Simulated assay, not measured.
Amino acid sequence: MISPTARVTCTAAVLTALATLTGCSSDSSEDTAPATTTPTTTTSTVAAAPVTTEQLQTQIDVFFDPAATSADRAAVVENGTARLAVLDQFTGVLAGYPLTGTVGEITTVDADTVTATTDVTGPHGGAPMPLTFEQVDGTWLIADESACSVLSMGRLSCE
């Protein structure tokens, strides 16, 4: 699902491209069409700052912190409030089986989505997992499907 912010960014990019194309003219002196002006909305588009490993690591630290409340976890997960019941169960799992996550390489998917290779480690070892993060209202959150993937490792279901 494309976020409203991504739609605005894409629309602005398309308008800018169209304005550039319409501003081109031929070498012929017979071309007397007036230049097309660009809408002011395209000039006000500001590219978002790239996400940092530290920003994503903060969200992962809260998600795996055994002392964090379910509400704390919900605040770092996309649609987290809808997942409170399963996050309550996850809090119980973390009390007996602590996990940690270390964010590694980040790959940009689009302006509001990135994937980060994250080493998820527990008492019996760990493995790298690609976790997706979504930017919602200016905050990077663990994507719902990625949170559910981690929860399923503990035999918890988002269904």
Rank of each mutant, 00 (worst) to 15 (best):
M1Q: 02
S3L: 03
T5Y: 14
A6I: 00
T9C: 08
T9R: 15
C10S: 14
C10D: 10
A12D: 12
A12F: 03
V14Y: 14
V14T: 03
V14S: 03
L15Q: 11
L15P: 01
L15N: 11
A17D: 15
A17L: 13
L18C: 07
T20Y: 08
T20L: 10
T22K: 12
T22L: 15
G23M: 10
G23D: 12
C24N: 15
C24K: 15
C24Q: 14
S25D: 07
S25Y: 00
S26W: 09
D27S: 15
D27Y: 12
E30H: 05
E30S: 14
D31E: 11
D31G: 13
A33Q: 13
A33I: 01
P34V: 00
P34M: 01
T36Y: 09
T37L: 15
T38A: 14
T40E: 14
T42R: 13
T42N: 11
T42S: 13
T43M: 07
T45H: 15
V46E: 14
A48I: 09
A48S: 12
A49I: 06
A49P: 12
P50Y: 01
V51F: 07
V51Q: 06
T52N: 08
T53W: 05
L56P: 09
Q57W: 06
Q57Y: 03
Q57F: 03
T58D: 11
Q59D: 02
Q59P: 04
Q59N: 13
D61V: 00
F63I: 04
F64H: 09
F64T: 11
P66L: 07
P66F: 05
S70R: 11
A71V: 08
D72S: 06
A74L: 02
A74H: 01
V76E: 00
V76C: 02
V76L: 03
V76P: 09
V77E: 01
V77A: 02
N79R: 05
G80D: 00
T81E: 05
A85T: 06
Q89G: 03
F90S: 04
F90E: 10
T91W: 05
G92D: 08
G92E: 12
L94D: 15
L94W: 06
L99S: 10
G101L: 09
G101N: 06
G101T: 11
T102H: 04
E105K: 15
I106M: 07
V109C: 02
A111I: 04
T113G: 01
T113S: 09
T115I: 04
A116R: 05
T117P: 02
T117A: 13
T118Y: 06
T118L: 10
D119V: 08
D119S: 10
T121Q: 14
T121F: 00
G122W: 04
G122S: 10
P123M: 11
H124V: 03
G125D: 09
G125A: 08
G125Q: 03
G125K: 12
G126D: 10
G126M: 08
P128F: 00
M129W: 05
M129L: 11
T132D: 06
E134Y: 01
V136Q: 04
D137R: 10
D137F: 01
T139S: 12
L141Y: 07
A143D: 10
A143T: 01
D144N: 08
E145A: 02
E145H: 00
A147W: 00
C148K: 05
S149W: 08
V150Q: 07
L151M: 06
L151S: 04
S152F: 00
G154C: 14
R155F: 12
C158A: 05
C158M: 03
E159N: 05
